[in-house]
Computed example of a mutant assay.
Amino acid sequence: MSTFSIGGDLLVRRLGYGTAQLTGPGYWGVRGDARGAVAVLRRAVERGVTLVDTADNYGPSIADELVTEALHPYAEGLLIATKGGVVRTSDNAWHVAGRPERLRAMCEASLRRLRLGTIGLYQLHRLDPDVPMAEQLGTLEELRAEGKIRHIGLDTITAEQLEAALELTDIASVQNRYNLLDRTSQPLLKLCEERGIAFLPWFPLGNGSLTSDPVCAEIAAAHGATPGQIALAWLLHRSPVLCPTPGTGSLPHLEENLDAAAVRLTDEDMSRLDALG
Rank of each mutant, 00 (worst) to 15 (best):
T245Q: 03
G153S: 05
G147R: 13
G277N: 04
R35V: 03
H237R: 11
K83D: 01
T184P: 02
L191K: 01
L127D: 00
K148A: 09
P132C: 10
C216T: 15
C107N: 07
F4A: 11
A55E: 02
K83N: 09
S90C: 06
G8N: 13
N176A: 11
E69G: 04
W202Y: 15
R99A: 13
G29H: 05
L162V: 14
A145E: 14
T50W: 05
L265Q: 08
V38T: 10
L180N: 09
L232G: 03
V174C: 12
I171A: 01
L10I: 09
C243G: 08
V12N: 01
L235D: 07
L166T: 10
G29R: 01
L180S: 06
L66P: 09
V67I: 02
I152H: 11
D269V: 14
R177M: 12
A275W: 02
A39M: 02
A93D: 15
I152D: 03
V40N: 02
Y58M: 07
G7I: 13
T158G: 11
L111K: 02
Y122G: 00
L124Y: 05
L78I: 14
G36C: 06
V30P: 08
L114Y: 06
R13A: 06
L121Q: 03
A221H: 08
E141H: 04
I197G: 05
C216H: 03
G24S: 09
P204I: 03
P187G: 10
N176E: 10
